[in-house]
Design a protein around this nucleic acid. Structure first.
Lengths: 131, 131
DNA sequence: TTAAGTGCAAAGACTTTGCACCTAC
DNA sequence: GTAGGTGCAAAGTCTTTGCACTTAA
C-alpha cells in the first residue's frame, strides 16, 4: 500500500497528455516535458506514464510499429493508425456502438469482458491527398 | 523486386501458425520450430514472421504487455487479452458485425479504413474459476 | 522525519542486421 | 551460377530498475 504523493513532473506529464491529441510515445512526452523540466529523465517519464496508466489516468496504446503510445483521453474511444505515415488518430465511435460491439462479443464468450479497444487501419486523409 | 524462394524453415513456421490457436510470441515460435530444425536461429524466425506478415500470410498482434504475438488465422477476427494471466484468445464476432463497426467508424472519418482489429480486455474463464 | 519521487546510468527485453556460408531454382 | 535464405553474433531500440539524493506531507 503505497500512498501517492504529488509531483510537479507527473502533473506536467498528465497535463500534456490531457491537452494534446498527438498520442505521443514516451520519448515524445519526454521531449515535451523537458521544456519545463530540463533535468527530467526518461526513466521518470516511463515511471509516471506507467503509474498514470495503472491508476487509470492515462491509456497505453500498442501498435504494430514501434513503441507504445499514450493517451490522456479517458472516455472509451478508438484509434486509427495510418499504415502509410504512422500517424495515430482518435476515431469516434459512439458509446452505444462500442457497447453493442462488446455485447455481441460477449455473447459466445465464457470469460468476462470489461473493455475493448479497436484499432482501425488504413490511409489518413493527408496521405490520400498526397497520392 | 525480390522473388520469394521456398524454404523449409519458413514452411514450418507458417504451418505452426496455421495449426495452433496459441498466438505465440516470436520466441515461442522459435522454441517450437527448433524441434524440427534444431539449428534454426531466432533471427531467421523473426525474418520469416515479418516476411509472412508483409505478404499477408500471418498477422502480428500488439498487446500492452510484452512482445508481439503472431497469428496464422487470416480471416478477420478479434482477440481477447486476459488481464490476469496474459492469455490471448480468439474471440468470435461475425463478419457482419465487424463490417458494421467499420462502417460506423467510417461515417465521420475522412480517411480510408481498410481493416480493423478489436482487442477485448477482461478476465478469462480459467481465471474467473480460480478466484 | 520518512515514504515517495527523481536523475542517472546500467541492465533487460525484444528485435533487427551484417556477414560468411548454404540452397532453391 | 546466382539471388535469396540461414545461422550466428553483434548492434539497435525501447523500457525497466538499482541507487544515492531530493522533496512532499
Amino acid at each position: 500500500m503505497t500512498a501517492l504523493k504529488y509531483s510537479r513532473q507527473r502533473e506536467s506529464i498528465k497535463h500534456y497528455l490531457m491537452t494534446t491529441d498527438k498520442h505521443p510515445t514516451a520519448d515524445q512526452v519526454y521531449m515535451h516535458v523537458k521544456q519545463e523540466f530540463p533535468n527530467i529523465s526518461l526513466g521518470t517519464v516511463y515511471r509516471n506514464l506507467n503509474l498514470l496508466t495503472d491508476i487509470g489516468e492515462a491509456v497505453k496504446i500498442s501498435t504494430p510499429d514501434g513503441g507504445d503510445r499514450f493517451d490522456g483521453r479517458l472516455e472509451p474511444h478508438n484509434h486509427f493508425l495510418c499504415t502509410k505515415c504512422g500517424r495515430l488518430l482518435d476515431l469516434e465511435l459512439d458509446m452505444k456502438s462500442i457497447e453493442e460491439v462488446n455485447r455481441l462479443a460477449a455473447e459466445n464468450f465464457d470469460g468476462r469482458i470489461t473493455s475493448s479497444s479497436t484499432l482501425f487501419y488504413g490511409e489518413c486523409s493527408d496521405c490520400i491527398k498526397k497520392s
